[in-house]
Nucleic acid binder design. Structure first.
Length: 394
RNA sequence: GGGUAGGUUGAGCAGGUGGUGAGCUCCGCUGACUGUAGAUCAGCCGUCUUCGACUGUGGGGGUUCGAUUCCCUCCCUGCCCA
């Protein structure tokens, strides 16, 4: 077995540095986040690469799409191939051949999404592995240890997101547990070449969100993440919650990351409320299911109307799929269950999403944010049940 | 020509030995998807006036209160024999 060289030279003592300037657009900011593996322009979107791969895409594809930073996952990588194996192979960057910045999620979201496969206690969470049922224990300390072994540029604290529709007491209990776990993550964190972000919870309850911001912002974390949104609540509730968080954060200079968002219009809602970073599976997941995001709106390439459509997926896009292939061709690949369909669709959607973020940054720079939003809304606005769950005021 | 096994909703099948065949899998048509148990899932997929109704088991005829089932006949397909 070949001996692998040690992991990338770490930039000791330089985890991340965030500089941002206010814009003329409400609370929106333009910024730069410097990490050991490169600089991130904000607002920025992070494609999700849960299992050390953004599904269907190579690192080269990601680079061509304009990706500056990607996300990996503690829970999945700890199960397979294990954090220790990745560490012995030189860390996550080397393992997956992505030399740009990586943010790792802590496994907190799996506490939510694998609700039927886990048991929570105050010390941590015990999962029955979704792969083989074997027991997997995640505590704040272990979540940090795994992320340090992976060697991501940014680690996340271990949290407990909940459905905001749960009874107030349950949302509060999870939030308070999240705060205690954040402090333990902080205490356990050792790597000086890795940043650590804290996560605000509290559902859509204004008072709880304020308390959560206070508790998390008090910690010397390198960034503030907003968790527990985009899990079924209305757009209005998400926006209202982001307003509460922005008010509570005030002029806190740290980078702000909205976890798990979003769709094209979600970016506008969040950016104008001061969010700098996003991640979401949506662009890549819907791509694999045939939905393409374009300047004409959402297209489902499996629809009959595309069978003989000779045009590009998006006439305004310069990605590999749009430069070289017709809608008819990609539609055929989907119908034939050809693997290339997933790559081309993912290449396009990631390119589209990252180009949208770049356009948002330009628009913030020249004051045309609202005009850009109009253009996107004209294609992406969809009816929503009016005033479902309201923001709780207590 | 003889024998034999078959002919069920686009395809492939299940079922049904006189008492209401619309069941499955593909294909097809839509929709959903937000820190990835998801190249997944859901609905529809004979016709109509669609919370229901009607029609439909190769064609025709017969027996019967009633036939997918029993009888006659014809057509078509596979295989075996000549």
């Amino acid at each position: 077995m070949t001996a692998h060289p040690p992991s990338e030279p770490s930039v000791a003592g330089t985890p991340v540095r965030f500089t941002a300037t206010a814009t003329r657009t409400r609370r929106a900011r333009l910024g730069r986040l410097e990490t050991p593996h490169g600089t991130i322009d904000t607002p920025q979107f992070m494609p999700v690469g849960t299992q050390a791969t953004v599904k269907a895409l190579t690192p080269g594809d990601l680079r061509a799409a304009g990706a500056q930073v990607i996300l990996g996952n503690t829970y999945h990588l700890a199960l397979r191939p294990t954090a220790e194996v990745i560490a012995r192979l030189g860390g996550l960057h080397r393992f997956m051949s992505w030399d740009g910045p990586i943010l790792t999620d802590s496994g907190g979201f799996q506490v939510f999404s694998l609700a039927h496969l886990r048991r929570i206690d105050d010390d941590g969470v015990t999962f029955a592995s979704h792969l083989d049922g074997s027991e997997q224990r995640l505590t704040p300390e272990r979540a940090i240890e795994i992320q340090e072994l992976l060697g991501s540029d940014i680690a996340m604290t271990f949290d407990q997101p909940v459905d905001p529709a749960l009874p107030h007491a349950e949302v509060q209990t999870a939030m308070e547990r999240t705060h205690r776990w954040a402090a333990r993550c902080m205490a356990a964190h050792r790597r000086v070449d890795q940043a650590l972000f804290g996560i605000v919870q509290g559902g859509t309850d204004a008072a709880l969100r304020r308390r959560s911001v206070a508790a998390i912002a008090e910690l010397p974390v390198d960034g503030i993440a907003v968790g527990g949104l985009s899990v079924g609540e209305s757009k209005a509730a998400m926006a209202a919650t982001l307003d509460v968080v922005a008010d509570a954060l005030g002029d806190d200079p740290r980078v702000r990351y909205l976890m798990g968002v979003g769709s094209p219009l979600d970016f506008f809602i969040a950016v104008e409320r001061g969010i700098d970073l996003f991640d979401c599976v949506l662009p890549t997941r819907v791509a694999r299911n045939g939905q393409l995001w374009t300047s004409e709106g959402r297209l489902n390439l499996r629809n009959a109307r595309f069978v003989e459509d000779p045009g590009p997926i998006d006439p305004d896009c310069a990605c590999e799929a749009c430069r070289n292939h017709s809608r008819a061709y990609v539609a055929h690949l989907f119908r034939a269950d050809e693997l290339l369909a997933y790559r081309l669709a993912s290449v396009h959607n990631v390119t589209y999403t990252l180009a949208l973020m770049a356009n948002i940054r330009s628009a913030l720079a020249d004051g045309s944010f609202d005009a850009l939003r109009e253009v996107v809304a004209a294609r992406y606005q969809r009816p929503e049940a009016p005033d479902k769950p309201l923001l709780t005021q207590r």
